[in-house]
Write a protein that binds this DNA or RNA. Structure first.
Lengths: 206, 206
DNA sequence: GTGTGTGAAGGGTTTCACAGCA
DNA sequence: TGCTGTGAAACCCTTCACACAC
C-alpha cells in the first residue's frame, strides 16, 4: 500500500465525524464541496484524500453518506474494538475515562493505573484503579492495544519504555515531552501547551 | 515579517520545553544536534527554524541554553501574561484549571463558565464558576485574551460566535468539530478523537 | 448539467551540503 | 576542528483544471 500522509488520515477522521452529523440530520448524499465546507478545506483536497483509498462517489451526484462513513470507518480501523489502558488517574485520566467519543468509536477503556498507592482501589465509573507496579502483567492480561500516558513528564519516558517492553505498539501521550519510540511503535502527542503557545505567538505578532 | 509555518512554531514550543529541561540540569550550552535528538527531528531542521528569527548560536560551539530559551519565549509571546477563560466546567475544564504548565508559562486562567446553573457558584481551586448567560460581559470585564472551549460539540459553534462577538481572537477548541472562525481570529483544535483514530489506522494497516 | 477522479502544476517544507566563523 | 547559518535540491502536499461518468 502506498504511504498515506498523516494529514490525510487526520482529515479522514474529520470527514467521518462530519458524515455522522449529516446522517443524524437524515442527509443521504453529500458532495465534496459540502464536506469541504464543513471541515474548512477545499473540495479538491477531499476528493484527493478519498482517491487514495478507492472511488466512493458517483459523478454528478456526490457520495452516499452512510456508505462513505462505513468505508472511512473501515479504513481508520473503527470497525474493530480496541482495548485501551490509561496510565495516570489524575484529572486527565479521569476525564478520558468519561470521554464519550471513545466508547462511541470502539475504543474500550478497560484498564487504568496509577503509581500513587492511595489511589489504587478507587473506582472511576466502573473501573478500579490498579497499581503501575503491575503494569506489564496487567497490560498483557488485559490484551491492551493502545496506551494513554496521562502522568507528569518526568515519569513519561520510563513508563513508555515499560509499555513498549510489554508489547504496546500505539501510545497517546499527554505529557509535554517527546517520547522516544521504537520501530513499529507509533506515538501521538496531545500537547495542550503547544497549542496554546501557538495562540500566544499569533496574538503577539503585531 | 515573512510568514512562518505552523510546524515551525510548534517545534519552537518543543525547543523551549527541551531548553527548560537542560537548564534544570545545569547545562549551559546545547548544539542543534542535541536539541534535535531530544525532540526527535533533524539538526538541519532546528537550525533552519531558528534562522527565521535571527542568529542565536556560535559556530563551533552551539547555543547558550538560557539565552535561547529567553529568546524563544519572547518569540512565542511567553514573556506576556495572557488572560484565559474556560467555557465548560466539566472534566476537561476542571483538568485545565489544574494544569500546571499554564501558570508556569504565563497563561492565567481567570474565568470559568458553564451553562448548567447547578454548577454556577461552585468553586474550582479559587475560581468561582460563572454563568455563560453573561459570557459577553464577563469576557470583556475580565479582559480575556484566549478562550478555551470545553463543552459538547452541539454548543461549540454558537459559543465560539459569542466569544468572537465579544472580541476574542484566539480560541482553543476541545470539542470534536471544526469551528468556523473569522479573519483575524485563530482557532486551534485539541481533538483527542483524531489522535486516537490515527493510532487505530496505524494498528489496522497490516 | 453536475460533481467526481486524477494527472499535472504549483507551492511550501525538509534535507543536503558546504562556506564561514569561533 | 566543530558546529552554525543558509542557498540549492529534493521531497511532499495542495491546488488546478478538465476528461469523464452519471
Amino acid at each position: 500500500m502506498k504511504k498515506i500522509s498523516e494529514s490525510t488520515i487526520r482529515r479522514l477522521s474529520k470527514y467521518y465525524r462530519s458524515l455522522e452529523q449529516l446522517i443524524e440530520r437524515n442527509t443521504d448524499t453529500v458532495s465534496s464541496d459540502q464536506l469541504a465546507e464543513m471541515d474548512g478545506i477545499t473540495s479538491a483536497q477531499v476528493r484527493k484524500d478519498l482517491s487514495f483509498f478507492g472511488t466512493f462517489g458517483k459523478r454528478g451526484l456526490g457520495y452516499n453518506t452512510k456508505a462513505l462513513k462505513e468505508q472511512l470507518g473501515e479504513i481508520l480501523g473503527l470497525d474493530k474494538r480496541w482495548r485501551v489502558a490509561i496510565v495516570g488517574a489524575g484529572n486527565i485520566g479521569r476525564a478520558l475515562v468519561n470521554y464519550g467519543e471513545f466508547k462511541k468509536q470502539g475504543f474500550n477503556v478497560c484498564l487504568i493505573m496509577d503509581s500513587d498507592h492511595s489511589k489504587v482501589g478507587e473506582k472511576i465509573l466502573d473501573l478500579e484503579v490498579k497499581s503501575t507496579d503491575d503494569l506489564s502483567e496487567l497490560v498483557q492480561a488485559e490484551n491492551i492495544d493502545i496506551a494513554i500516558i496521562a502522568i507528569p513528564s518526568d515519569a513519561a519516558q520510563r513508563v513508555s519504555d515499560e509499555l513498549m517492553d510489554a508489547g504496546i505498539r500505539a501510545i497517546l501521550n499527554f505529557a509535554p515531552i517527546s517520547i522516544k519510540s521504537r520501530p513499529n511503535v507509533m506515538v501521538k502527542n496531545e500537547n495542550t501547551a503547544i497549542e496554546i503557545e501557538a495562540l500566544s505567538y499569533f496574538l503577539s505578532k503585531r
